[in-house]
């Protein structure tokens, strides 16, 4: 019973990390790092909550989350892809701005509520028969729609990336932009679309924190999880299946931390458990040796003029 609970929560906590890391893998293959990921997660959480609260429909919450993500992504793409400015610096600026804007607009819309506003979170959808499997049935087959989506998207993403023409274009853009350009494919457009698409997915990932299980929004709701998704992209060696493993490990770590915090057993201080995912990221980043870094990652592509 306890194992089922831990597994269930592990899958839950890994959902946004999976979505975020998959989005980051795609965009990084085109040679652009989406450094605004933390801010987009936050805007997604904001959009998800606001959309769901105002329309009373979680569907529109998810839509607004994607829109909010794409808005930040569009600014990021314009500055980094079109104007070729520094990706890390632009990302830092947008993350600070997102932090301000999300909290500010929440205040504009709702004032200062005395009790925190809540919405009903995404409902679990038990899959008939399969959810009756002992131990893992409830964990794997009684989750909400975003978790299913994340679990399906990882293998689909792998297939698209390594088995389709689209995937080839995406991978070539970051590996050899000149060749892609010579083949008549617009490099800037590919990169821009990749940033926009990744921002939409990141918006969904962020929405998972607000309407996926908590049903509320606060300014510290993301707390660096965007960066963890960013790290998982590295740790999974730019391979969606690697990121799947990474995301699940982090989900499990968070789930165990929650279990230990609520169990009343005080083996270690709470703070250590809270710090665990971040320490894990550091250790994993150090331990990872072989990297499959896209050759032109972070280097703006400037078309030579004739």
């Amino acid at each position: 019973m306890m194992i089922t609970g831990v597994l269930m929560r592990a899958l839950q906590m890994s959902t946004p990390l999976l979505l975020g890391s998959l989005a980051e893998i795609f965009v990084e293959y085109t040679g652009v790092m989406n450094m605004a990921i933390e801010g987009i997660f936050l805007m997604g959480a904001w959009g998800g909550f606001v959309g769901a609260y105002l329309t009373k429909s979680l569907f529109w919450g998810l839509v607004l989350a994607m829109v909010a993500g794409v808005v930040i992504g569009a600014v990021y793409a314009f500055i980094t892809v079109k104007l070729k400015q520094h990706q890390i610096v632009t990302g830092v600026a947008l993350n600070i701005l997102s932090g301000g804007i999300s909290v500010y607009l929440y205040r504009v819309l709702f004032g200062v509520p005395i009790i925190p506003l809540t919405v009903e979170s995404l409902r679990r959808i038990p899959i008939p028969v399969l959810c009756k499997i002992p131990v893992i049935g409830q964990a794997l087959f009684n989750q909400n729609i975003l978790t299913y989506l994340a679990l399906i998207l990882m293998p689909v993403g792998y297939w698209v990336l390594f088995r389709t023409r689209l995937g080839l274009i995406v991978r070539s853009t970051g590996a050899n932009p000149e060749a892609v350009d010579a083949a008549g494919i617009n490099v800037e457009r590919t990169q821009t679309l990749a940033v926009l698409a990744s921002s939409a997915i990141n918006g969904l990932a962020g929405a998972f924190y607000s309407i996926g299980f908590l049903g509320m929004f606060s300014d510290d709701i993301i707390g660096g999880r965007g960066w963890i998704a960013f790290a998982i992209c590295f740790l999974g060696n730019w391979n969606p299946m690697g990121a799947l493993v990474g995301g699940l490990v982090f989900g499990l770590a968070e789930s165990l931390a929650v279990l230990l915090q609520t169990s009343g057993i005080r083996l270690v201080p709470n703070e250590l458990l809270i710090a665990m995912p971040y320490v894990l990221t550091i250790i994993a980043t150090i331990a990872r040796k072989q990297f499959n870094v896209p050759a032109f990652l972070g280097v703006p592509y400037v078309k030579e003029r004739s």
Partner: peptide, 9 residues
């Protein structure tokens, strides 16, 4: 935060 973010941008 908004002022700082916009100025940076």
């Amino acid at each position: 935060g908004i002022m700082e973010g916009f100025v940076m941008l």
